[in-house]
Design a protein around this nucleic acid. Sequence first.
DNA 1: CTATTTTTGTACTAATCGGTACATTAATAC
DNA 2: GTATTAATGTACCGATTAGTACAAAAATAG
Lengths: 196, 196
Amino acid sequence: MRTTVGRPKSFDEDEVLALAMNYFWEHGYENSSLDDLLITMGIKKSSFYHAFKNKEDLFSRCLDLYGKTLLNHFETLKNEVGPKTALLALSEGMINELKETGKIKGCLLMNSGKECYNRYSGLSHQIGIGFHFLLEVCERFVAEAQERGEISKQKEAKIIAGRYLNTLNGMTVMIQAGASQELIDDLRENLRELLE
Amino acid sequence: MRTTVGRPKSFDEDEVLALAMNYFWEHGYENSSLDDLLITMGIKKSSFYHAFKNKEDLFSRCLDLYGKTLLNHFETLKNEVGPKTALLALSEGMINELKETGKIKGCLLMNSGKECYNRYSGLSHQIGIGFHFLLEVCERFVAEAQERGEISKQKEAKIIAGRYLNTLNGMTVMIQAGASQELIDDLRENLRELLE
DNA sequence: CTATTTTTGTACTAATCGGTACATTAATAC
DNA sequence: GTATTAATGTACCGATTAGTACAAAAATAG
């Protein structure tokens, strides 16, 4: 039984949020104009400002959705293929994306960290929290892989997770700056060595 | 003896270019409005469009100046303290910047690589060339350090240089995403280990 | 001095930005 | 059916963007 009064919403808020997230992911925060976002989301400006506070609020909710979606996929993958393979999937996925589309988007959280740094303190704070959470998940995966004997216990899980994410982030930057295939291949090897 | 006719230019082109470069370095390409750049450079719009083609041309020349200045400092430093210490100065400088100012700007070339990727093909191409040149210089420094016995010859100089720059770039991203001091400290250690 | 050449200051343009006002439309409850 | 409530469509706003037009000013050469 319905309890709400008035004309019902003609769009699914979560659906248009996912569409906006993917647009932001591809174009970044500032380079996504509200008009373009509205076309992507398939709604009108007035409807948008009823559902969301403003563009920054939309982006904030997209960052949230991104983090939740990423961690969900990540956990699911771990349950399917194990923690070490799940970790390697982060880099392998990027390399496949490059091979298939000729470019990479990188991680929305990391991209946004750079874009918002020293300019959008609210968003930066949110990104920091998401980043630490992601790092903790990676650390947990490394620890599990160490318990399974898939990764050496010579270094602490925290250290390995930090270096792995760092190398992955560096790789994104290097590729986008124009790294050669030879360089990319060695960075991939570097990532594999980190998880030995 | 003067040969030019007409009112002489009241500003030094190289000087205002350096001012623009520093502004771009701090604010990025798109987030530097022409009006703000003109205030920084201390010249009027009409003078600007006489000296430069447009904003993109200005940025292109700033990228060029950045690369030349960086390599010049880098070579000078190497002659003073040797290749290994010069390489380590790249990361130590960043950590000092963070300690002293509470933030880091990162490398203009790498920042611009991300910003221009898939959006400004001309600038992206230029950045790619500058990046490869920087990488080659690092490789040469590593090779020299290996000859001096400061760095192990176990890995090729090219490999070490690539991994070093990659780790350094990752560190920039991680710091700007909100990395903890503990994490930063280990990445610093990671960089030192790469040059052992 | 005058004529010439180049820089400079001011005003303007068209496009785009995020955001708002408000009347219209479409659903509900009764 | 009518009254109510909320979503929608359209038109608008002021601010900012990169870039241009053009006359005034300042230097030269003769």
